[in-house]
Amino acid sequence: MAHATGKSLWNAVIACLVPLPSLLFYLSFLRATSSSSPPPPFAALWAWCSRHPLLLANLLFFANVDVLFWIIGLLLSNHWLIDLYWTVIPVMLVHYYASHPMSKADAARSAVAIGLTWVWSVRLTHNYFRRERWQWGEKEDWRFNEMRREYGKPWWWMSFFAVYLSQQVFLIGLCLPMYAIHSSDKPWNIWDSIATGACLTGIVIAYFADTQLYEFVSRNENLSKVGKPIVPNLEEGLWQYSRHPNYFGEQLWWWSLFLFAWNVGQGWMFVGPLGNTLCLAYVTVLVERRMLKKDHRAEAFREYQRTTSVWIPWFKRTIREKAKSS
């Protein structure tokens, strides 16, 4: 127990210190550009950073996340940091875009986007720590474990691309609407209100779906401890209408955030949520294959697949068939 506590505290220190390079660099940049004439010897660097907010965001991500997180993951033999920072980086990005010298935005749209991102982050961070039993770096994503076993020795360098560089593509792409919001001062309109409501709906759905899943897993763990048979499949609450309601809620959040970008004339930014949706579709296949490999729930899960919608919540197929026959 003492060893586990010490490891968790050490990981907490690492997690708090690891973003400091990019934070300190950006704060130095803001301080320099707040004066009328940026002091040498970095005047040219600060001028470039002022003109290229999106490129700067990518460079900071590459240096501080792709490279530094990867090195730490190799040293710890555990790539857990990227999972935690999935919940933090969007908050950092929305504040970065809002505070950049080139930022221009409708005050209401900016404030709502920042507030929504914080709500989303708190929800996801709470779920992360709850799932990890409130430990820092207890384990890494099961998909990384499978890739480590599959690729063997080459995994040490392949992990840079599979775990980190790929995350940059997804996260920067998903957060493009935050850049769009702070690149236009178009006044708030009805589409912003619709986007706000849809974002909140996605967050609420994901919260309740994850909570129901957590309670289901906890109940099964308690049943297993006392030698009682566990329940093979979760088919209550939102899970009776969708096999992955947590994924649906998360996708609704990102697509709704895109509505803000579309509303200010940046419709091409659909590439961010689309790429994430395609990736999550593949993850859904992996998760379901994993469920079918477990003998104690394979039969129940096949029936669940037959009767229940994959993502979008809907009535079970048996219910619809009864309605047609009546």
Score class of each variant (00 low, 15 high):
L252Q: 01
K322D: 09
G265Y: 01
H126P: 00
W120H: 07
P273Q: 03
S36M: 05
A105G: 10
S309W: 06
Q305S: 08
K294N: 13
L252T: 14
S224M: 06
S183R: 09
L74G: 01
W155F: 14
A281F: 09
E235C: 11
A198T: 14
L252N: 03
V13M: 05
Y247S: 05
S28Y: 07
N64W: 08
W311K: 03
F258W: 14
G227H: 05
S193E: 03
W118E: 09
Y85Q: 08
A195N: 02
A195G: 01
F29R: 03
W253M: 05
D106K: 01
A162I: 13
L280V: 11
A107C: 05
A323S: 12
S224F: 06
F129P: 01
L286M: 14
V94G: 01
S103A: 15
S218L: 07
A180S: 13
T277M: 10
L60Y: 11
F260Y: 11
T5Q: 05
S309V: 06
L257A: 10
F160E: 07
A32Y: 04
R302H: 05
L165D: 07
Q212F: 09
T318Y: 09
W253D: 02
V285D: 13
Y241M: 11
G265A: 02
F25V: 10
L17W: 02
F29E: 02
P41C: 06
S325C: 08
A111H: 07
S224V: 10
F301T: 13
Y128P: 01
R123Q: 04
L292D: 05
L278G: 15
K225W: 00
T318F: 06
V283S: 12
F301Q: 05
R123L: 03
A32S: 12
I89A: 01
V285G: 01
S50C: 13
W118S: 02
S256F: 00
